[in-house]
Structure formats: C-alpha cells, structure tokens
C-alpha cells in the first residue's frame, strides 16, 4: 500500500523528469541542476517511505511485490545519481526518471492495496543479501537503458540525418563508460550479495543451494555481464555490438526477476 511519502517521491521524480526533459531539449543548465536536485529529493523521500515500510515489516521491504519493486526503483535512482555525479553527464536523466515514474506508478496499479504481513525473521545478513542483489538488478537496468540510448545514438550517427534532440544526447564514448560503470556496480553488488548469502545459508544449514534455479540464473547473469565487460574492450565487439550484448543480457535479469522468482525457485521469491 502506497504511503503519502511514496506519492510525494513519485511527484518529485515526475518533476525531475520534466526538468531533465527541458534540459535535454533546450540545454538550460538550471533545468539540469533542478532535475538533479529534484531527483535527489525524490530519492530522499522514497528512502523514508521505504523506512516507514520496513518498520512495519521489521526488515528490508522485499517480501511483497510492492516493497520489492519500490526498493528496486529507489536503488535505480541512487545508482543513476551516483553515475551522473561521477561522469558529470545529465542528458540521460530524462530516460532514467521516466523509467522511475512509470515503474512507481505501475506499482499502484499492480499492487495498490497490498497489506504487508510480517515476514519470517531472517536476520540482517539476509536483508543485506537481498538489498545488494536488488541493487545489482537496478544497476543492470540502468546499463540496459544506457545501452539502448547508445544504440539509438549510433544508429542516428550512421544514418547521417541527426534529429533535433540528437545534439543534446551524450556522446557514444560517455554512454559506453557510463554503461560499463553501471555494470561494474551491478557485478560488485551481486558478487558481494551472493557471497553474503553463502555465508548466511552455510551458517544456517551448513550448505548452499547451488542447484536452485535462482542460483543458477544468478551465476549466468554474473557470467554474461563479465563477458560484456570483456567484449566491450575487444576488437570486433567494442561499440554498438557490445551495447547490444549489454541490452540483451538484461533479458536474463528480467527472467530471473520474474519467471524464476514466481515459478521456478523454491525459496527465492524476492
């Protein structure tokens, strides 16, 4: 169930989207700065919304669809904001904030009145495992968006008929670096998340569920993104082909987040 804070964060993301869009269209630096500030405000407010929710559940909100998707959106915003500040590049903001707005608005349609039930107490390590893995998915989602923008930009450059907004889009090199950074964040958080799960489960039952479909798919995700990082610096692959690989890799992430979670795994329903 959405709180007032969640609605406020949605409004801030929407306002941020408008500012980023204006920045993309007229390149007004104040519009860009406002977009960043509103996004940061939205992230802050959504943090308190998540905190409110976690107080009710006594854990990170991952057990229900609403909480899990909300956490995903928040981590996507955090990752993008970090990359924007690191790469000093705002022109992708419009795409990312649009994704955030659509995502959070969809939450209210898909799980509008979900009543939160207290989940099993699994401890802080487990919460950290889930948070880090969700963060990895968010980072891969961001890399997906950046790769799509790369492919569009590359196509426009090759067509030799640039459109009006083309001149505002980030350079291919910048998109490539941002996408790689995002994948690095995803791999690091996923790797540490899996490691923590290993420690947690070993401490609990003395073994690790290697054959669980979620674990197998997670290993596959790690493998395909490591391959992407390698390919994106290899002759014959760097550039648009690597961006295509990165975009396609996200299909596996979506598969893991939906089909595997809902139908295949025994216990990874987060």
């Amino acid at each position: 169930m959405a709180s007032h804070l969640q609605y406020l964060s949605l409004a801030l993301y929407a306002a941020s989207f408008v500012c980023y869009l204006r920045f993309l269209y007229v390149s007004n630096p104040w519009a860009g700065r406002s977009g960043t500030l509103l996004l940061a405000a939205g992230i802050l407010v959504q943090y308190f919304a998540l905190l409110q929710r976690s107080h009710g559940a006594h854990s990170v909100p991952y057990d229900d669809l609403y909480g899990s998707m909300s956490l995903f959106a928040w981590l996507l915003g955090v990752t993008y904001l970090g990359l924007e500040l690191f790469h000093r590049q705002r022109t992708v903001g419009a795409f990312v904030t649009l994704l955030l707005v659509v995502w959070i608005a969809a939450l209210d349609l898909l799980a509008p009145n979900q009543v939160l039930e207290a989940p099993l107490a699994r401890g802080a390590l487990f919460d950290l495992h889930i948070t880090l893995n969700t963060w990895a998915y968010a980072a891969f989602a961001l890399a997906f968006v950046l790769s799509l923008v790369y492919l569009v930009q590359d196509r426009v450059l090759r067509s030799r008929h640039p459109s009006a907004t083309f001149w505002r889009f980030p350079a291919l090199d910048v998109l490539d670096r941002m996408s790689r950074s995002s994948v690095w964040v995803g791999l690091a958080t996923l790797g540490v998340g899996v490691l923590i799960a290993l420690i947690w489960e070993r401490g609990l039952v003395g073994a690790f569920s290697w054959l669980d479909p979620k674990v197998i798919v997670t290993v596959a995700i790690l493998a395909v993104y490591i391959a992407y990082l390698r390919l994106s610096r290899s002759p014959g692959w760097r550039g648009a082909r690597a961006a295509m690989v990165c975009a396609l890799n996200f299909v596996i992430v979506l598969f893991s987040y939906t089909v595997v979670n809902l139908y295949l795994t025994r216990f990874h329903h987060f």
């Binding site: 450059l157 083309f166 980030p170 910048v174």
Partner: peptide
C-alpha cells in the same frame, strides 16, 4: 547547433568521442 560545415564536422566528432 552548428551553422558551418567545419563546425558541424567537429560537433559530430564530439557526439562520438565526447
């Protein structure tokens, strides 16, 4: 947006390399 052939060429290069 660039209004000369020379500047258009350079601006396009910036779209590739930043």
């Amino acid at each position: 947006r660039p209004m000369s052939v020379a500047l258009a060429g350079v601006k396009l290069a910036e779209r590739v390399f930043g």
